[in-house]
Simulated assay, not measured.
Amino acid sequence: MFIEAMECPNDEFSGRRFYVQSDEMLRAILATSAAYALVNPHKSMVGAGPDTTAGRQAEEQAHTLEVVSQSAHALRDGFAAARSGRFEAGTLGPIADNISDRIEADPDVFLKVTRLKTKDEGTYVHSLAVSALMMRLARLLHYDEDAVRELGVAGLLHDVGKLMVPNAVLNKNGGLDTDEKRLMRTHPELGYRLLRDQGGVSNTVLDVCRHHHEALDGSGYPLGLKAGQISREVRLATVCDVFEALTSARPYKRPWETRDALNWMFERGHLFDKKLVIRLGSIFS
């Protein structure tokens, strides 16, 4: 059938005036917030030529949606294995490869798809998005491919400590109280200890897990490290983590526009590495 219009924001689904040509395209449409789509029955019957650009965009989005969904389920299994002491870091490499392919294909589409995460899968899809951003940024900074993949795994695992934080706190509507904030701030150290005790986890992955909430001026946590004590890899992870959090919908806030998030971070050079913020911004059209 030929779709004339979708009743949803352009930044959620950019396709307009196109043929639905596959089940993947249909799934991409169903994943949006649109309650209605305007179908042109005449064009659907006569088989008028499709809008190939919109069709390609829809297929790209559908493919990315499928990869993100499968990767989120695989990451959930990886987190469960870590909690039970059966974790093997090598099992996450293929997940990193798959999402790296998707963000390389189209960073804007990848970020749009990850914005569709539900409350239950929020931590997993957030970790996928952070991982993909870290790999894309690392390539821009000319890291070799082994290091890129290691950073991808680090991104996947940076929030594994949230397994020990109650869902009532993770998914709370509204701001956290003092005790809840204190509990939330334990997740980097808890995740670090969990991974350290597993064995076979690289120092880079451990550092990213433990220090991704540190800030250049020493105001971060859990150790209050200052600029000279924070590695470039951790700085990279922090920039990607905060950007993804700002541009995502949360129970307590609306998502920020990409430009607003980048500007906010750039203006806070006492917290974030401004050079990395600039390079991160170059990823998006």
Rank of each mutant, 00 (worst) to 15 (best):
D108E: 09
K172I: 05
A154C: 10
P107L: 15
R102I: 00
D108S: 06
A105K: 12
L137A: 09
K119E: 14
L141S: 10
R149V: 07
E121Y: 05
D108P: 01
G85S: 11
K172C: 03
N167H: 15
D108H: 03
H158N: 04
I103Q: 04
K119T: 13
L156V: 03
D146E: 13
R139G: 10
L111F: 07
L137I: 08
L170E: 03
E150S: 06
K117A: 01
V125W: 00
I95N: 00
T91R: 14
R149H: 15
Y143N: 07
L151E: 03
K172L: 01
T118P: 04
L116E: 07
K112M: 13
L170T: 06
R149Y: 05
G93I: 08
L170R: 13
H142W: 11
R139V: 05
V125T: 08
M134E: 07
L133A: 04
D108V: 09
E145H: 10
L156W: 01
G122F: 12
V169W: 01
D146W: 11
V148Q: 03
S131Q: 01
L92I: 11
L151C: 05
V130Q: 10
R102H: 00
L170F: 07
I99A: 05
L111R: 09
D101F: 04
N98M: 05
S127D: 11
S127R: 05
N98K: 10
V165T: 14
M135K: 09
V160P: 09
V113C: 00
T123Q: 11
Y124Q: 12
H126M: 09
D144W: 15
V169N: 00
S84M: 08
F110L: 02
A138F: 09
G152F: 04
L111K: 06
L140F: 14
L151A: 14
E145R: 13
R139I: 06
V125P: 02
A168K: 15
T118H: 12
V169S: 00
T118E: 14
G161V: 08
G122R: 14
T118F: 06
L170G: 02
V109T: 13
T123G: 11
V169I: 15
S100A: 13
Y143G: 04
F87G: 03
N171S: 09
A168I: 11
N167T: 14
G85L: 07
P94G: 04
E145Y: 10
E150L: 08
T123C: 08
